[in-house]
Amino acid sequence: MTPVKGGYAVDVPVIHVSERARQEHATVWSTFKAFGVTLRRLFTSLFKGDTPTIYYPEQTRPYSERFRGTHILTVRDDGSLKCVACYMCATVCPAECIYIEAGEHPNPEIEKFPTRFDIDMMRCIYCGFCVDACPEEAIIMSREHHQSVYNRDETIYDIEKLMARPGIDAKGPGYRPNRPMAEAKIFDKETQTVCPIPSVIQERHPAVLYESMIRRRD
């Protein structure tokens, strides 16, 4: 791309703003040209099936493998939380949205586990620093980004929601350590029937994420 007189040599389209403005000067003729475009798109989408739109939310565009959506707390093989409550994520979090309370684990080899792990999703800026900081690959992100709720309280995700909300893995994991996860996995309700957080395995309609969705609003 070498600069030549009056612009740049070929490979980049050079737009002369004033020139284009002069060409696109609105006339009656340009109005009909625009109708022509609309008509052409009508026929191509009707008969060729070339639609630029998709049936969202039934269909979605593919998200990146490294999409930074709602967090997931991963589990060990026995279904217990991988997190050891080291507070690295809470320390690095620039939005200060992670709140952890640690407890004594019955197994002295593990020593520490979170009795409370809350993320304030309204405060979170989805930077993914928590994933980078985690020494245990215990927190990863998903490709999910729908967090519509009726009640502000529900934007604070506790352990249960972060670990095993319905459809947690439907869109696949998002931003996570750039290597295969060694010991951690995402909690799976089908195979895992025992869980230290009892409410996780309670039966619920898969479409109903939160109680507020079926609560009548008055």
Binding site: A90, A95, E96, C97, I98, Y99, I100, D118, D120, R123
Partner: peptide, 11 residues
């Protein structure tokens, strides 16, 4: 010294 957890209730 620092607000860990920001707006989380109870803190």
């Amino acid at each position: 010294a620092r607000a860990v957890g920001g707006g989380i209730p109870g803190y």
